[in-house]
Amino acid sequence: MLGPSLDVLFCGINPGLYSAATGHHFARPGNRFWPALHRSGLTPRLLSPAEQDLLPSYGLGITNVVARATAQAAELSAEEFREGGRRLARLVAEIRPRVLAVAGVTAYRTAFGRPKAAVGPQEEQVGGTAVWVLPNPSGLNAHWTLDRIAGEMRRLRESIGRGPCGG
């Protein structure tokens, strides 16, 4: 979901089979993207994946590094990530969001050739846009709790000078 004048373009790794079947990003029950987005103050209420069309009204957009749906991101090749990174850089250069937020540090490292990247703001830009790497919100990413993921999204929100709930 893209729109004009985005503050943040969120970028998932690739659609899981559940998300591909529903046509909605981060749709699998147990994925923490939508609750973390709300807890961070980027949306005024908890949105369901089926409400992803509302994101541009909050200055937010959403896409993926790789379009191919898989059961697990581990099924993607390094070349698919690199090609996805090139496509994403073109998209970002075209729509010019304030920040590209990639949800998944390993995906970012592979797609953009940044093997030492860590969660948080990046020194390098993509398509002329600032980059922030977020933890993967999948329920399988046990290293990051919902509160910690929301906290990282909150840091991103505060870094661009947005008050809570898009204010």
Results as ranks from 00 to 15, higher is better:
residue 3 G to F: 04
residue 4 P to T: 14
residue 5 S to M: 08
residue 6 L to T: 10
residue 9 L to F: 08
residue 11 C to Y: 01
residue 12 G to S: 10
residue 14 N to A: 12
residue 19 S to V: 04
residue 20 A to C: 05
residue 23 G to S: 05
residue 23 G to I: 09
residue 24 H to L: 07
residue 25 H to Q: 10
residue 26 F to T: 00
residue 27 A to I: 01
residue 30 G to W: 02
residue 30 G to N: 03
residue 31 N to T: 06
residue 34 W to S: 06
residue 35 P to K: 07
residue 39 R to C: 00
residue 39 R to K: 13
residue 41 G to R: 11
residue 43 T to K: 07
residue 44 P to E: 00
residue 45 R to H: 00
residue 49 P to S: 11
residue 49 P to T: 09
residue 50 A to N: 05
residue 50 A to L: 02
residue 52 Q to Y: 02
residue 52 Q to W: 06
residue 53 D to K: 10
residue 53 D to G: 10
residue 55 L to R: 08
residue 56 P to R: 15
residue 57 S to E: 13
residue 60 L to R: 03
residue 60 L to N: 07
residue 61 G to Y: 09
residue 62 I to S: 08
residue 63 T to I: 07
residue 63 T to N: 06
residue 63 T to V: 14
residue 64 N to V: 13
residue 64 N to F: 11
residue 65 V to S: 03
residue 65 V to C: 13
residue 66 V to W: 06
residue 66 V to Q: 04
residue 68 R to L: 00
residue 72 Q to T: 15
residue 73 A to Y: 04
residue 74 A to T: 14
residue 76 L to K: 12
residue 78 A to K: 11
residue 79 E to P: 02
residue 80 E to W: 07
residue 81 F to I: 04
residue 82 R to N: 01
residue 83 E to A: 14
residue 85 G to L: 02
residue 90 R to T: 14
residue 92 V to K: 06
residue 93 A to V: 02
residue 93 A to H: 06
residue 93 A to S: 14
residue 95 I to G: 01
residue 95 I to E: 02
residue 96 R to V: 01
residue 100 L to T: 09
residue 105 V to T: 14
residue 105 V to D: 08
residue 107 A to Y: 05
residue 107 A to F: 06
residue 108 Y to S: 08
residue 111 A to V: 08
residue 111 A to P: 05
residue 112 F to L: 11
residue 112 F to K: 06
residue 112 F to M: 13
residue 113 G to Q: 11
residue 114 R to A: 15
residue 118 A to H: 05
residue 123 E to I: 09
residue 123 E to C: 01
residue 123 E to A: 15
residue 124 E to V: 10
residue 124 E to W: 12
residue 124 E to Y: 11
residue 125 Q to M: 15
residue 126 V to N: 05
residue 126 V to M: 08
residue 130 A to R: 15
residue 132 W to G: 05
residue 136 N to I: 00
residue 137 P to S: 01
residue 137 P to T: 04
residue 140 L to R: 11
residue 141 N to Y: 00
residue 143 H to W: 04
residue 143 H to M: 02
residue 144 W to P: 04
residue 145 T to F: 02
residue 145 T to V: 08
residue 148 R to Y: 00
residue 149 I to Y: 03
residue 151 G to P: 00
residue 151 G to D: 03
residue 152 E to V: 00
residue 153 M to S: 04
residue 156 L to N: 12
residue 156 L to A: 10
residue 157 R to F: 09
residue 159 S to T: 03
residue 163 G to C: 09
residue 163 G to D: 12
residue 165 C to S: 15
residue 167 G to E: 13
